[in-house]
Design a protein around this nucleic acid. Sequence first.
DNA 1: TCCTACAGTAAAAACGATTTGATTAGAGGC
DNA 2: GCCTCTAATCAAATCGTTTTTACTGTAGGA
Lengths: 331, 331
Amino acid sequence: MTVVSIKEVARHAGVSPGTVSNVLNRPEKVAAATRGRVHASIRELGFVRHGSASSLRAGHSRTIGLSVIDIGNPFFTDVAAGVEEVASDRGYAVILSNSAGDQTKEDRNLLTLAEQRVRGLLITPAAETTRLDSLRQRGICVVLVDHPADRSDLCSVAVNDVAGGALAVSHLLSGGGDRVAFVSGPLTIRQCLDRKLGAQQALLRAGRDPGLVEVVTPTMTARAGQQAAERLLADGLPDAVFCANDLLALGMLRTLLQAGVRMPDDVSLIGYDDIDFASASPVSLSSIRQPTQQLGRTAAELLLDECDNPGTHTHQQIMFQPELTVRESTR
Amino acid sequence: MTVVSIKEVARHAGVSPGTVSNVLNRPEKVAAATRGRVHASIRELGFVRHGSASSLRAGHSRTIGLSVIDIGNPFFTDVAAGVEEVASDRGYAVILSNSAGDQTKEDRNLLTLAEQRVRGLLITPAAETTRLDSLRQRGICVVLVDHPADRSDLCSVAVNDVAGGALAVSHLLSGGGDRVAFVSGPLTIRQCLDRKLGAQQALLRAGRDPGLVEVVTPTMTARAGQQAAERLLADGLPDAVFCANDLLALGMLRTLLQAGVRMPDDVSLIGYDDIDFASASPVSLSSIRQPTQQLGRTAAELLLDECDNPGTHTHQQIMFQPELTVRESTR
DNA sequence: TCCTACAGTAAAAACGATTTGATTAGAGGC
DNA sequence: GCCTCTAATCAAATCGTTTTTACTGTAGGA
């Protein structure tokens, strides 16, 4: 259990600890010969900088937090991949935490992140009530991911979910959908609510009654989609279904097929997110595509800019536009 | 940007910093009245322990690292969910890093984790050559995940991939498979190699020539599966295909179907991992099921036991057994 | 030749917690 | 009444960096 500190490197290289630190952090301040000697010692002794000590003194760490709603959803792992790519390029480590849509768990995770003194936080809030101000007061930069900020002093990267919802439902209507059902997770999740609003907008614009058959599930998984399908089968099938994400849609699709429902003939079905697996289902799934990895990359870049250039940084609320991807599951 | 330290809590409560620390770490050492006063001050001032300072002095942090091969593979997110569950219960944060099967990237990530002074590391090594000893010498506990340790001084949690490979191929043979193809990622990845060995074992046991049509792809994604399918279509189809994971299998399945190949009649296809989406494909995918979340949970428990009870901890190499799940894609 | 400027380095003071050894005040035994 | 023992608290040292200040020697300008 060898523990090599900067002090031993210094002694080994015949310089002071401060000089070693300079080699590490402002190499241009150190004469080339000295620098070489120090680097040699570092390599020889296998020195690895102690991040805790470093961030204690420097006042900030080289880690950022990423809090997502569902780590099991390919949408979020795609986002995470984008984040990781940018962060790791800049030497930041990413602490991933999964709120699983549960605000208690989210709170607990945020406390842990605060203790770790992450430099910044990327978060898809589990609910509108998520408290971020206390973090920001502690000097932790925050960027909202897949969630637009409603204030100008906060960065956010999102995709227009109202537009996406409208896109989905107007596509369903164009296929002759009459009675449209909306299947989603809790409407306290903004994404769900916005997609519903978009759906209603599309109905209104088509001169229809904005009333939707609504099925709300506790989670947004394939299993929940299956249960929603069972409910619809029991209550009477609509002729078009809009699921708030692809996991729900895939669960529903499988269950309806098993029940002998033909798609898109009997029911027209569309999901949201356009995850990879959407195109690999028995009846390939129409969906609303989002620039997922891009979302993660942009968010990370915004966050690191805010961290590294607090002076010049200007807060931005970036909103991407979703796109309709038509496959076999819709008419 | 208020920064509340233990010192201010101490002043506010009229005690010394050491006492506050005791309240936090050994509450039984502090008189109940004092304890109450300190807790009140902590709440009132919104104090949050500075993890870096704490781990600097204490010599270890409350974080563990988790290094996986492909964050985009539901298999690994399932593992991660299991790990996160256990870690978060015990107040540990998980730093997730994705080697993407690239050893250079893995090295870089491990360095970052070493700098963060993670308490322990859960890792699915990108290759057999991954060097872990330098980490362990630094006092970082290591547990291998989805990879059996070949030494008794190291914990590991794995699933018997040789048995799994054999299971898959003997099932293919029982369906009348004659010419069997094996599609996998680089054979430097142990999982791939072991599954291949298992496949050959099954052939031998059935009295066949252990020769396999082998297609090796650089990554183990659905896209790679598609490319492998194109290769097979060009070179002449075997009548049975064993893919080293479900992503490959799903990509292959889709591509073969598009090419008009009937499954399982023309080709019998089996994957590995039994991810959720395996049952949601056009022709539902037979696969080899692994206790995935369990893998993550067990690994995390082993790791935290080693961290917290270095005295009594005994290293274990745990090996789970895989199970065959038969669906429509095989005869 | 002297002074200034500057580059390069060292010494020392932080950062915020934990931990050790010392100190105090009561309680109890004789 | 004195001594010992224990419980509760405090003061100070410490973890490994970074950063500021101070120092040295050499080069260039007058």
